[in-house]
Design a protein around this nucleic acid. Sequence first.
RNA 1: CGGGAUGUGGCGCAGCCUGGUAGCGCACCUGCUUUGGGAGCAGGGGGUCGGGAGUUCGAAUCUCCCCAUCCCGACCA
Length: 587
Amino acid sequence: MLRMSNLFLRTLRDDPSDAEVASHRLLVRAGYIRRAAPGGFTWLPLGWIVYRNVERIVREEMDAAGFQEVHFPALLPKEPYEATNRWVEYGENLFRLQDRHGNDFLLAPTHEEMFTLLVKGLYGSYKDLPLTIYQIQTKFRDEARPRAGLLRGREFVMKDSYSFDVDDAGLQRSYDLHREVYIKTFERLGLPTVIVSAMSGAMGGSASEEFLTPLEVGEDTYVRCSSCDYAANTEAVNVPAPPTVPIDGLPAAQVVDTPNTPTIQTLVDHLNAHPELARSDHAWEAADTMKNVIVKLRYPDGSTAPLAIGVPGNREVDTKRLEAQVAPAEVEAFDEADFAANPALVKGYIGPGALGSDGSSGIRFLVDPRIVEGTRWVTGANQPGKHVIDLTYGRDFTADGVIEAAEVIAGDACPNCGEPVEIARGIEMGHIFKLGRKYAESLGLTVQDENGKQVTVTMGSYGIGVSRAVAALAETNSDESGLCWPREVAPADVHLLIAGKEGGPQRPAAEDLAAQLEAAGCRVLFDDREGVSPGVRFKDAELIGVPTIVVVGRGITDGVVEVKDRRTGDRCDVPIGDVVAHINSLS
RNA sequence: CGGGAUGUGGCGCAGCCUGGUAGCGCACCUGCUUUGGGAGCAGGGGGUCGGGAGUUCGAAUCUCCCCAUCCCGACCA
C-alpha cells in the first residue's frame, strides 16, 4: 500500500515553465518525473511504478512469444561500430567519449553490432536458428534539440530485439511474428497505434514499418489512404509516376521574358496575363512550372556536394523526405557563398540547362517522379528575367535521376489505389524492420547449412520506446484536471481518500477499507495525510490519475462510500461492505 | 546551424532600465483555528541571483565571454 503520508511525492500547483506538452507538464506536476539533465529525467516513486508496469507488459509479451532476454552494457567500445561504419555514419547524434587511456567509446544509441557479435561468438550452425533475443536498456542519442519531456530525450529506455535466420523466408516469419507481438503489446498498453511503411534510416536494411501513436505533438508525419489500408510515413511515400507522353507534336520550347516574377505565383500570373503565351489545354497553374532547388549535402566525413532538385512548382521540397533519401548525408542550405562559387546558377532563374552532369554547372540534378518523358514545364532559363516554356523532358532536358523529395499534400493520390490521402501526425512508438545481411556481413556472422557450407545470417531488428510509451500514455490519457491512467499501467488501482473531520469515523473506516482492499489483491494509494484539506485531496487524486477514486466521507454514517471513475467522472455510493467486490468488478 | 526570449529558495514570478541590507505567491517548519473541492491567522527556516572574467568603494542590477532552457526558423527560387 502506498501511503501518501510518507510517499516521496510533492505535487505542484503551477505548471513548470519549461514544459510545453501535456505529458511533460502533468508528469512533472503530479510528481512522476523530474528533470535532471537536458533531455534526462529522474523517475520518482509513482513514475517508476508506471514505468515498470509498462516495462513488465513489454517483457511479458516478448517472453510469451519465446524471445529471450539478455542485457548489454550501454558503454561500448568503438571497434564494432567501426566495422559497420556506423562510428562515422551515425553522425552527431552518437555520444562518443574516451577512457583515461584515450581509447574511444560510445554510449550506445542501439545495439545491432553487439547482438550480431554475441550470436557469432556462441552459435555456428543452422540448427541453432531461428533465434530472437532482446534487451530492455537505456539508450543515448545526442539530439540536437531534446524537447517535449520524455517524448524526446537524450537518454531513454528502449526494448530492442533482433532476429537471426538462415534465409529470407525465415526472416519473413520472424518479422511477421514480431509484428503480431507488437500489435498485441500496444493493445495491452492501451496505446492506439497506426502501422505505417517507413524508411529504415540510419540502421540500414530494407523493409520496415513503424508503429505510430497519432498525436499532434508527434514529430512524424504520415499519410493514410481514405479508401484502402495504405499508410506510410511521409518519408517513405513513393509517388507514382504518371504515364509518359509521346513527344511528337508537342510545342517547341521557347524562352520568354518574365520580368518581375520572383515567385511561382507571380510567374503564373504573368503567363496568364499574356494571351500569346497561353496553353491550348488549360490556363497556366503552379503545377505546370518546375522549380529547381539547390541544397548542399554534408556527408559524415565532412565533405559537401551541391544537389539540384526539380519539383513541380506547386510543391515545396520536404526536408525530412529529402534527408531520408540522401542519408546518411545531411541537408544544408545553399548560401550566398555557394552561389558565388557557381556562377552558372542565376538565382531565381535556375533551369535544367545549368544542371546535371551535362549542364553548365555540372551539379547533380534529380527530379520528382512526376517529371517523366513528354511532360513539359515552365522553368528558369538561366538568364535574369527569363523563363522557358514547354521545356519537355526527354526532348529538351534530362536529369541524372529521380528523387522523392517533394512534399506530400493532403488529397494527393494514394500510391496504392489512387484515392485521396489524409495527412496526420504521430509519434514513433515501435519500429520493426528487416535488416537483412548488412550487419552479419560486416561482422562475419555466418552459420553452416545442411551441406556444411557457410551462409551469412539474415537479421531483423525491432524496437519499442519504453520510456516514451509512458509519456505517450500520459499524453493520450489526460484532461484539464490531470492524468487518468489505464488500469494496467496505473500506479494503483484505487486512490482512497478521507474527506471528513479528523477524529471522526472516516479515518478508522478508511484504514479498515484500505486493509481489506489490499487483502483482496487491490493496489491501493491511500491519502492518509493529516491536516490536509479535502480540496487538496480531491485535486491531488485527479492530478495523479489513479483510475478509481474512493472517497470515505460524510456517507460513512450511512455505511456508504463514494466510488468515482477518474476518466468519466461517474460516481456512485457503495455500501462499505460491498466496496471490495465492486472494485474487483471494475477491472 | 540562425533569430528571439528567458535564467533570482523545491515550483511560479517581481526586482535590473536609474548599482547601495534579496522580495512576493505556492510549497516547507511551529502554534491555534478549520475539514466535501488547491483553508485562516500568527510566527519561522531556506537563495554561490545560471557560470566565469571585468568596471566600481560597492554588482542580481553595468560590460564581455561561456552555459542552459523555451519558442520560431532551418528551403520555398
